[in-house]
Structure formats: C-alpha cells, structure tokens
C-alpha cells in the first residue's frame, strides 16, 4: 500500500470523490447534481481498486453508476413537480455549520485512533473468496435478501399493474 503509485492514486481519487460529493450539494441544476453523484460513485470504485478489492470495485461501477444512477435520473425526470434546480432553502447556514461539525468529528476520530494493520496477506482471488463466503458462511442473509428483492419487485409490478390494467390489457 506504501509504494508511490497507489498513494498518488489514493489522493487523486479522494479529491475527486469528496469534490464531486460536495458539488452534488452545491450545484444549482438537479441533473448536474446527479452527474456529479455518478462521478463520486466512480471515485469510490477507484478507491476500492486501490485497496486491491477489484471485484467490489467493479461491482460498485456496475451497480451504483450503472443502475442506481439511472433510478435517480428516472425519479427526477418522472416527478412533474420537481423543479429543475436545487430548491432555495433558508436552512443554508445551519446546514453548513452542522456538516462542518460532523466532518471535524469524523476526521479527528479517523486520525487519532491507531488502526492495527492486519498482517494476513491480501487475497489474490477476491472474487472466489466473496463467492465462497456468500454461499456457505452467510447463506441465510443472502437468501433473505433475495426474497426481499423479489417481494419488492412483485410489489412494484402490482402497483403499476392495477393502475394500468384497463389501458395495457387489451391493446
């Protein structure tokens, strides 16, 4: 982790992620905010890769910047009332102060504690390690999550279905 390449990469990605995250809140146009959100997702994916967790990094790109961003975009585009700009709120000052406090607290906590570096060598084969862990050690949460998602999907279809039955049914 100490050789110069990854340190440079880390700091570059950190700046991108934090910067675009900040821009998400600061920029006026809502669609620009979403694009910056996607940029921060990619930054986080880059950070995963610097930690040589390549499977999680790639899945982060696939899931977050591929699917969830589209979800957010459709949400924005399909809600008619949503004005296209970040609403002007009077709570701007207290928001800044509060976020400043939280940031300093987190910063202090992360710098002050001495993280114990585990001596075990990094995984080369991260993908198979995750696969094995998912399917034997954590099989129960894996199945519950699958069932939950299935229920959610069916719920979504049912909500749309009965509302559109007369339209969609016959043509």
């Amino acid at each position: 982790m100490e050789d110069t390449g990854t340190v440079v990469a880390f700091w570059a990605l950190a700046i991108i992620t934090i910067g675009s995250a900040f821009m998400v809140a600061a920029v006026r146009n809502l669609i620009h905010a979403v694009v910056f959100l996607v940029l921060s997702f990619l930054g986080v994916a880059g950070l995963y890769i610097t930690l040589s967790a390549d499977f999680v990094g790639v899945v982060q790109i696939l899931i977050y910047s591929g699917a969830i961003a589209i979800l957010v975009i459709f949400a924005i585009v399909l809600t008619p009332q949503a004005g296209r700009d970040n609403a002007e709120t009077s709570m701007r000052l207290p928001a800044v102060v509060l976020s400043g406090l939280v940031a300093t607290m987190l910063g202090y906590a992360s710098i002050d504690t001495n993280w114990s570096i585990s001596d075990r060598p990094g995984f080369e084969e991260t993908a198979s390690a995750i696969g094995v862990a998912l399917l034997d050690k954590y099989i129960l949460p894996f199945e519950i999550a699958a069932a939950l998602m299935l229920v959610a999907m069916l719920g979504a279809i049912i909500i749309v279905r009965d509302e559109g039955t007369e339209g969609a049914a016959e043509d």
Partner: peptide
C-alpha cells in the same frame, strides 16, 4: 481477474 465483469460494468456507464 474480474475481466468480463469489468467489460459489463463499463458498458453500463454509457447509459448515463
């Protein structure tokens, strides 16, 4: 060693 998944993930970016 996640080559193919990388291909699919990058493919999903151009939707945005």
């Amino acid at each position: 060693d996640v080559g193919v998944l990388f291909f699919v993930a990058i493919g999903s970016i151009n939707t945005i």
